[in-house]
Structures are given as C-alpha cells and as structure tokens.
Nucleic acid binder design. Sequence first.
DNA 1: GCCCAAATCGGTTGTTCGCCCCAATCGTCT
DNA 2: AGACGATTGGGGCGAACAACCGATTTGGGC
Lengths: 217, 217
Amino acid sequence: MSKIRVLVVDDHTLFRQGIVGLLESQPDIEVVGQAGGAKDAITAAVELSPDVVLMDISMPGTTGLTATAEIKARSPKANVLILTIHDREDYFYQALRAGASGYVLKGADIRDLLDAVRSANRGDVYLYPTATKALVADYLRRAKAGEDRAGYDGLTDREREILHLIAQGKTTPEIAVELSLSPHTVQSHRDHIMTKLDLHSKAALIKYAIAKGLIEL
Amino acid sequence: MSKIRVLVVDDHTLFRQGIVGLLESQPDIEVVGQAGGAKDAITAAVELSPDVVLMDISMPGTTGLTATAEIKARSPKANVLILTIHDREDYFYQALRAGASGYVLKGADIRDLLDAVRSANRGDVYLYPTATKALVADYLRRAKAGEDRAGYDGLTDREREILHLIAQGKTTPEIAVELSLSPHTVQSHRDHIMTKLDLHSKAALIKYAIAKGLIEL
DNA sequence: GCCCAAATCGGTTGTTCGCCCCAATCGTCT
DNA sequence: AGACGATTGGGGCGAACAACCGATTTGGGC
C-alpha cells in the first residue's frame, strides 16, 4: 500500500512546516513537495502529480482559488484540499466551483485534517460542519423554489396549451396555424388566460409560465 | 453538562437494542426512548422531546421519511438522524427535504454514528461521504447552469439598462418616461439589442433576461 | 485630425397586442 | 329543460411592437 503523496501550499513558512511535520508523522502520508506561492504550487503540482494538494486560500498575488482551478485544469487527478482561516460561505462556494475536494478550517483538529486528507485521497469530499450546513441550506432553498410548480389557477387544458405556446414566444397567428385554429380563437383563449390570471401583457405571461415551470430557459 | 437525550426508532428489535446498547455505553449519551414503528416514533418524540432521533428509513407502514417530517413539524427542536442501509441518492435528498439533520449508513463505523449523534445535537449536519459528494455535485450542476450569467454578448451599459426594463414588462413609452428619453431613442436601443442578440420578439428578450439572471420571477 | 462606437432623436410601414363587443356549438350538471 | 363553462369563430380600435430608413452629438483611440 503506497503512501498518500501530499503537496503543501502556504505562504506562511512556519505554519507550512508545522503542517508538514504533522503529516510526515503519519505512516500512510508522505509530503512530496511544498510551495510558498500560487505559481510555485501550480508548477509543483504538475511536476510532482501529488494525490492531494493542501492549499491555503489567502496568499499574496495569485490567490489559492485560482491556483486550485489551474491545478484541476492541468492535473485533474490531484485532489485539492482548501485549508484556510476563513469561515466564509462565499469562499467556500468559490472553492467548490474551483474544483476543491474539501474545505478545512485552520482552527480544526489535526484529526479532522488527517480525515480530510484521506477523504480527498479516496476521491471523497470533506467539508467542515458550517460548510455542510450551508450547502444543505442552499439545497433546501433551491428545492423549495422549484416546488411551486403546478396549480395553474383554474386554466383549462386548452388554455394551458395556448399559454405554453405563447410562452415559447410564438405570436397569435403562428399559434393559430400550429393548432389549425382561427387567429380569433387563439386571441379569445389568450384573453381568457389573461383575465383569469389577472395578467396584462405578454411579458407577464412569460414570467408566469417560467415561474410555474411550464417552459425552460 | 447534561447528556444527549436520544430516541431510537427501528422496526428490527435486535438491531435497535444493539444500537441502544452502544449508545448507552457512551458517557455523554442517554437513550430516553425506543420505538418500533413510525406512529410510535411520532408520539414518543412529542412526549419525550429528545435532542436527537435516530430514525430507520425503511419501516413497514408509514415510512421513516414521513415520520421525520411529522416530527420536525410537531417538535422542531428534535434533530432527526436518518440511519439506513440504503445508499441511494433519492432517499438522501428526500431525507434532507423532510428536515433530517444527517444521514448515516448502517454499514458505517460506530465512531461515525457517535460523531453524527453529537453533530446532530449541536445542530450541525452529518452526512456520509457519498451523500456529501452527491450534494456537492448537485450544487456544481446547478451553479454551472446559473453560470451563464454576465457576458451579455456585447451589450453596452445603456442597452443592458433598457433590456432590464423591457424584461420587467415595461413598454417602450414607459421606459422613455422613466429614463427621460424620447420613445424613439428607447426604440433604437431595443433595435440594437435585438440585432446584437439575434432575438426577434419581446418574448425572446424576456426569456434571455431570465436565463441570464437579469430579473427574478 | 480622423474614425468609430455609443447615445440621442426622428420617420415610415406593416404586424401584433390588448381589450372591448358579439355569437354558435357542445358537454355536463342540476 | 335550463344553466353554465369550454371551445370555437368573428369585428373593431388604439396602442405597442419589429424592422427598416435616416440624422446629430459626444467621447475615446490611433
């Protein structure tokens, strides 16, 4: 069983060396490189192809987030673990989007850090509790937003059909051709729809349709 | 420091008693009740007001998920931890939506279960690795869909401003009044917008604006 | 100084919208 | 049998839209 090859990136030399010492004391972990800046980190990651990159987020010049994105682009099999003092949601989300495999606070216990390194090596994602809560809350917020589907406020089948076509951007005569109807009939349906929904413009109809999930972007 | 009051719900008596034994052996955890069915679980949760409910997801009759939702509705301060053999994404998402504070597999280590119970008691969310990965993947999928923001395909500031107002459903003369411009000017901007975006109707403009996140529902 | 893009203002033409009016047919429910 | 809603069809009118034409002014870059 080969050791987990780790690259440690942090501009604070003392802190970095402390981390390296802690990691080296583990039988299953091997520190294969260190970097004190974002540029060094990228070249080191490409050359050494480590299993896990421990990345500080706040570094002078190029930030750890862009370095993370760069590393994931050039060396996708490297799992980047963000190690930071910032317990901030926006940083955390940025880290996820940059392709990070985890987010650990510097205030965390060493056991958590080791767990995170091993998780990252397995391809799993390690998140600290606040981040997990934020992510779940975000999911629930989005799930709730998507729940207000259905319930077309008393529209008939034909009216929903017409509304669907209107919302696609089709004009009244176009719809008339498509449904083999007189334009007057389509017009009539449209009038009914707008009366029922208390909407008074095509714009409002389209927004309504999108809000109800009738059409996609 | 008072102990963490736990209610254990599982229809498999032997397994349930095993879990109870393991929990009772912890100095900071106290099992205050057990239930072998969803109905019993709900009444027990209301009566005992435990800190944490360990809930099996697959039970005959009313499922653990509906029981979870019911408990969260009637006794919101109880943190429900789903304990199941099913490593299935859909169950996991359903559990989140039902208000669960965590999701632990029965195949997990006892240390993980204890961590989860303590996390739930703190109000944190505990997820097993697969679930975390799924949640992150879901977030990234949604984030990517929403990323096509900005990059308004070469629109000028003024044009974006006009587009924003159009997408709100305002008519050309209304916009002219609002910006103290001639209707002809607004018309001209609108023409430019439609030419640049290769869109040919108000409907298309609104859908474009929504897709780009310019306006909300 | 010249060029170009942006922003402003103006007009014309045909189409579509939004809102009224109306009526005939059909099915369901009472 | 009568009432009601859904669907279909029709006319008219003023406003807005969509597409084209033109123009001037302003500001920045080469």
